[in-house]
Structures are given as C-alpha cells and as structure tokens.
Design a binder for these strands. Structure first.
Lengths: 170, 170
DNA sequence: AAAGATTGATCATTCAATCTTT
DNA sequence: AAAGATTGAATGATCAATCTTT
C-alpha cells in the first residue's frame, strides 16, 4: 500500500499511498502529542465526538462515527471509564444499550487537549494554501464515496444477484 | 481527529479529518480484500516493499520505509517467516543485522495479491479525475513535509537551543 | 430473527528496556 | 557509546461467537 520503491506509479496508487502515509505520520505524531496528557489519539477522538454531539450517543453510533468495529468501542470505553472521563449510563428506552456521556473531568481533559491538537494541525498546514486544502478535502470525500461504492459493488457481485439499486441521496 | 459533528470546521481540521477517515476506510477494506489470500494489509506492505526493492533490506530500513517502529517489524517478519513468504538471512557485513528477502512462495503470493489490490484502487478512484488525483497527491506530500517540519520545530523548542538548522535538500 | 454490547483469539503498533555487535 | 534487533507491557483493531433485549 505504501510503495516508495514503485517504478511506474499509476497515479491512483500514488494517491492512496500518500493518503496512508500522511494518515500514519499524523496519527503517530498525535499519539506523541497526547501522551503527556495521558490520552491516546483514539481516546481523544472519543472525547471530541462526545463533546461535539448534542445528544448522548450509544456505542453503536460511536462506532459508526469513528469508523471502527463495535467491539473496539468496548475496550476504549472501559479505559476511559477507568480514568473517569466518560460514563456509561443505562438507556431507559432500550435496556440493551448504553448512553455514553462525557464526565466533567472528561470535558476538562478535552478542553485541555483540543488547543494542543489544533495547534498541531495549524502547524502542519502552515505552508499549504487554503485553495489546496479545500480541493484536497473535496477529493478525499470523493475517494471515500468511491471506496464505498466499489466495495458495495463487490458485495453485490459476490452475493446473490443485486436485489435492487437502492440509491440513497444521489 | 475525526470530527463529523464539528460545528465550525476550520478547513485544516476538515482536511486532516478526511485524510484519517479515508485512510481508515481504505485500510479496513484492504484487510477484507486480502483476508481470503491469507494476507493482512501490513503484510502486503512488506511483500510489496521487498518485491520493489532491488537490494535486500535490513529491518531498520524496512521500518523506515513503512513508517513504523522497528519493534513492530519483528513480529511482522516472524509471522511472514512462519508462512514461508519471507526469510531472514545473516548479513555477512554486519552480524547485528539481517537481510530480509522474499522467498519464491512470497513472490508468488505477491503476484497473486497485487492485481487484487490494484483493481481495488482503480475501482475506488473511478469517478475521480486525473487532475484531482495529481493535485491531491501533491498536497498530501506538502502536508507530510509540514508535519515533519512542525514536529522538528517542537523537538528543538523542547530540547536545548536548536544546535544547528541542519538543512537537507531544501 | 435482529440489534446492542461483550468476549476471546489474532494481528499490529508504540514505548521502554535489554542483548549483541560495531 | 551507538546501532540492529528483540522482548514485554499496554493500547487498539478485526472477526467470530455469545448473551441479552427488542
């Protein structure tokens, strides 16, 4: 996926390669940045998601927003509950589910971490023009749609005979 | 880092968010794609790197190319050796180091996996113009340079008093 | 049956500490 | 001392299987 020795780089391969390399680099540096605060990057993501959401979220929704398997959320919340930054509350409307909420300490931790993170992002993008940022953002959204469409196509080809197109917000 | 609920998204935050989301989505789908072949995405990366390199690589170099810690390479190669796709050879010039080489079976596996991977990339980028691909690739390279420059700046600020600029390939 | 959550196995990754060789 | 590699502890991710509730 990351092929720096590639001889005849199809442009698409190069783009994906750079996406993965950029994400890896940034994620790794984020871990180092958050470490003195006692946070991991994944945990910051949870705090940020909860802080930005108006309603309480259940674990399924959290998993969808963070684009990880639901089972990954269990351990993540276990550790965040252990440090007291997050709490699982019983959902009165559905006894299978939890409502995950930020504690006061969790919000303070997020208030502390957020400016650190934002400073890093600004630092990293200092030399990149606003036009380029906008353009790349739009392109990456298209790539994500492309990945989703392609995998969906594969799934249909693999399974039965493509029941229905089922177009949503085209 | 991935903040889909963001209210006033600075454009830089959005870009980083999309980079991480795109990489996560693509990595995840790659895992599913490679699974029937008995490969993980990280393992495909190793095979691809070895296949594309003219000389044998030591583990340190491999770690640098793949942008992971050296210690992650140990387990990765253990598993790849177990399946017989890679071999550690003693380096006659330096008895601390290994020369990591692809076995014949490893090359066959790579020959099998490569077209699968390339098809996925083409599928994902089908609807993205070549111009956009080129532009985004260039932007991401600048972002990586920006991350490196910023973390370097932080390191110097944190340590002593920035011994020397030490500019390389400006 | 389907959906929310958890568990156990496997893989990958980081960091700090250690061993061997240079 | 510095560099290549490994180990052990911790975190995080996936998948398959399971439990409880809807």
């Amino acid at each position: 996926l990351i092929s720096r020795f590639m001889k005849t780089p199809e442009s698409g391969l190069s783009l994906i390669s750079e996406v993965l390399a950029t994400a890896g680099l940034f994620w790794r540096e984020s871990e180092r940045l958050f470490r003195p605060l006692g946070l991991t990057a994944a945990q910051y993501n949870v705090l940020a998601t909860l802080a930005a959401s108006s309603e309480a979220l259940n674990q399924r929704t959290l998993a969808d927003v963070l684009v990880v398997d639901r089972s990954a959320i269990t351990g993540l919340l276990d550790r965040l509950e252990r440090t007291g930054w997050v709490r699982r509350e019983a959902d009165p409307a559905d006894r299978r589910a939890y409502r995950v909420v930020l504690t006061a300490a969790g919000r303070r931790k997020w208030d502390e971490a957020r400016p650190v993170y934002h400073a890093a992002v600004r630092g990293a993008l200092e030399e990149v023009t606003e036009r380029r940022v906008q353009e790349a953002t739009a392109t990456l959204r298209r790539v994500q749609a492309g990945v989703a469409a392609w995998t969906e196509g594969q799934r249909n080809r693999g399974n039965a005979k493509a029941i229905e197109p089922k177009s949503k917000e085209p």
